[in-house]
Amino acid sequence: MRLYFLFFIALFISTAVSAEVNIYSARKEALIKPLLQRFTEASGTRVNLVTGDADALIKRLEIEGKNSPADVLLTVDAARLYRAKTRGLFQKIPSEMVSARVPARYRDEDGYWTGLSLRARVIAYATDRVNPNQLTTYEDLADPKWRGRICVRSSSNIYNQSLVAGLVAHLGIEKTGTWANGLVENFARAPRGGDRDQIKAVAAGQCDLALVNTYYIGGMLTSSIEAERNAARHIGVFWPNQQGRGAHINISGIGITAASKNTEQAKRLIEFLLSDEAQHWYAETNFEYPVVDGIRPSETLQQWGDFKADELPMNRLGEFNSEALRIMDRAGWK
């Protein structure tokens, strides 16, 4: 009887033994699956995937504790990587390749996570109504001259939270608070929708400026829907703070979980994602900037030119995330 039972248990466990790697991914399936398939083809390692909201996945990791089946956590922003790290959910990535290929500011200083791709948050402007010479910095967006002319999505969105966290890191809480108040004053409408919606609103004339991530513009320019392509053609991309610290950058990134039972496969997956092939794929398919130096961005991205990126360490975005949200709450940024 007991033998049967053990056999049954063994069966359960055996499913977890073959060469595989289990991923909790905040990156949507469609934006990661092709790359993972390439990895399986190249390495013979099976990849199991669950996608979801980053915080929900972090919560799941936390609750599952050391029994968690997940080997890696993929996120699309730095703050969540920071959060997972501070909650002890990651272990150090045992790979020299990471420090060799990824610039220090795009990976954890203690080696717990690394960035995989870069995303820049820029000012999109209506080419027919705004002279780009008027645009300067993020800080300038709080200027009364933009009263009623700015569109931006909800403060619930992590990209906005990270942007504000970056400002907190540079300017301090008080100045950022004043800035947020001014920005909210300048809103053309209550925040709603996603980044593409902000672009469409600019194109439609509801507002003149919008804060958006560049890859959304790329996605719209190459969309199968004519209306999206039209909207994207109406806007220009402005890189803020080029005279100063540079444009706000966020990353998508990855870390190996503390509970990982397939650390070797997880390491290989990370190395694959940092390979030239994968870095090109990010650039070509999702219009993100490669994290590895020397890989050329896609042609769509090149048309917006080179830019100077903020060199703030990514962990700072995580550190100030909660403070950023409070500032936005106080400013009435919905």
């Binding site: 399936e29 995937l49 669950v50 929900a56 996603g194 980044d195 996605g219 969309s223």
Partner: peptide, 25 residues
């Protein structure tokens, strides 16, 4: 979204992931 096992997706999840990326079409 939170509870499903590995490699297990439903119509609602697929709809959400695409719509959330603002790929309504």
């Amino acid at each position: 979204l939170i509870l499903r096992p590995f490699n297990y997706n439903t119509l609602a999840i697929r709809t959400y992931e695409l719509a959330n990326e603002e790929r309504l079409a």
